[in-house]
Design a protein around this nucleic acid. Sequence first.
DNA 1: CGTCTTTTTGAATACTGTCAATTTAAGTGG
DNA 2: CCACTTAAATTGACAGTATTCAAAAAGACG
Lengths: 265, 265
Amino acid sequence: MSTATLPAQTLHFVPAQSMGLRQYQSGKPVQVLKTHCSACHLRELCVPCGMADDEVEQLDHMMFNRRKVRAGQTLYREGDHFQYIYALRSGTFKSSLTMADGREQVSSLNLAGEVMGLDGVANGTHASTAEALEDSEVCAIPYAHLTELAAANSGMQHVVTRLMGREIVREHGLMMLLGSMNAEQRLAAFLLNLSQRLKARGYSATEFHLRMTRADMGSLLGMKLETVSRTFSVFQKKGLLEVDKRHIRIVDLDGLKREFEARMH
Amino acid sequence: MSTATLPAQTLHFVPAQSMGLRQYQSGKPVQVLKTHCSACHLRELCVPCGMADDEVEQLDHMMFNRRKVRAGQTLYREGDHFQYIYALRSGTFKSSLTMADGREQVSSLNLAGEVMGLDGVANGTHASTAEALEDSEVCAIPYAHLTELAAANSGMQHVVTRLMGREIVREHGLMMLLGSMNAEQRLAAFLLNLSQRLKARGYSATEFHLRMTRADMGSLLGMKLETVSRTFSVFQKKGLLEVDKRHIRIVDLDGLKREFEARMH
DNA sequence: CGTCTTTTTGAATACTGTCAATTTAAGTGG
DNA sequence: CCACTTAAATTGACAGTATTCAAAAAGACG
């Protein structure tokens, strides 16, 4: 996992008008924001990660539409027709699945620079629902357009497969967590993972705001919300964390790592 | 998931010699078996699934080498350089990951017609180890060759992404299992899934031989081997199964389904 | 035939879940 | 601005489930 620190976030807006594009909606012109990957502050983390400059330039020609999603709104829902994959520009999402009995199972927490929606490739319909945990903004990448581009440029081929590969490896990690760790190890692993990802995005690695409820974290980590709450309290008593609702400060990062590594007998 | 029943297995061998190919190893000619997807009994399940006839023909030109793997041997190991993906022709494999503390975490059970090794796409090295649970045979598909073919034929592009998509969806399912089911539901889900997959391969859906140990099943399902054993006994007492070590007969399939669907309060 | 692995089962323990009560925070509307 | 309602989080007590440890039985294999 990359631990490179990014420069402070400087959002790069490209008004459609400035590119000779203009869209109309109910009679009045709507300024559609388009995105250039090469100028994006997230280019080292997002889709262009690992790509050559001339390849990123090809992505630029696609000029992805940007879409704002308010907190609580969904970007796509389970069963929706799969058309786009989404690169998260800013904000936070949770992805979840509905189980046979109707309960919701959270499957991931998505941060800026991460790509969502790839689980739709398999069947042409989204297998999960993506809900914004705060006001967020995404780049909508037409999947058909991307594969078209890949047909012309063999170097572009690996973009999607590499992204999907990342997803598979990420899920491997979660499976290990769910299959073999106790409550304290699970929460420690979650916090350390989040800390690292926030650090890679230029945020503090030791102080952050959780955007999920205890119930959502519990669902993601395979435990009940009360157990999540209790485990936070335990970590606070051990002097590893300072917890105030969703505000977390990691006091003893190494101690938290030891907690994570601790064998369960 | 497909529930189509395949015709009885009629293995199709294509000696290299008959195609003008011959490989030498330590001085003596070695007959390398090559495979034609179009004539394979697994074509409805394996890589060619969903492909047009002319596309399958292209796969035929690749003439994948076949490789035999004896029970207990590994096809690839965690960290190995990623070069091939493998289509399982016959036999059974388990895939596993090594955790930080050295313990093994089983991540999947692979049956004939399934594709292994895709987790290597992400980083160029295999993220898991694949071990044969019985004498098995695989088609070794050079990944570079496959992407080359995809560059020339846009219809071939989706082959890998669809396979990876399947893998992501499969892992979603396992995450739901690990995150929200109790021991009885987990084992029921495992047995029902296995039953369905065996049926799709032309085997009995209700009577089969488990190729994994209790410990391996426990690792895959996130429980200890003793719990696996106890849960088998419980199902037997309930009249759902007849269990004799690794020989399983499902007596009451619907009852097992109810067991799986049962809400945990 | 003996050794090693696998499986089963019992008993005690540890952990997590369940239920319930309380507190705090966040809206909502008078 | 305050009372009211709702959602989120914390904590205690208890129940239930899975794990651990231990022992024995059954195969597998050389």
